[in-house]
Amino acid sequence: MGIQIAMTVNGKAVDADVDPRTLLVDFLRINLGLTGTHVGCDTAQCGACTVHLNGRAIKACNVLAVQAQGAAIVTIEGLSPDGVLHPMQAAFKDCHGLQCGFCTPGMVMSALDLVERHPGADEATIREQLEGNLCRCTGYQNIVRAVQQGAAAMAK
């Protein structure tokens, strides 16, 4: 039996009839075509699927679409609606905070939640708070630098 859901995604109201077992990440990617949100491990460990649900970073592969009923969702596509990079995205580009790029959307969405909750975080705090995001290229040095630079740019 399908369930009628409605939410806002990147500021736009969307609604759909979904199978209750549909994961939020599949709803975003398949129903809405927002393929910037990646599926990495599909077991809630790697964080590539991180999006914001009512302003909090969550793993969209471990949340059902029906759990986002009435919520405001922001994906990586929602950060630069007019094509201009968000300061955090620009920092990842400047600092070479990505190698293959697969984990990057999740890293950026996670970093934004981190900056919101820990403004002025030091390097140790950033590393600890990025625990839910894995980079298989092991490019953590530059990712941490990117988060620091992005946080500084956002504070301006």
């Binding site: 809630a44 964080g47 949340v63 996670s110 625990e131 839910g132």
Partner: peptide, 9 residues
């Protein structure tokens, strides 16, 4: 507990 995304849910 877990990581930040897990703590948020």
């Amino acid at each position: 507990i877990g990581d930040r995304q897990v703590r948020n849910m």
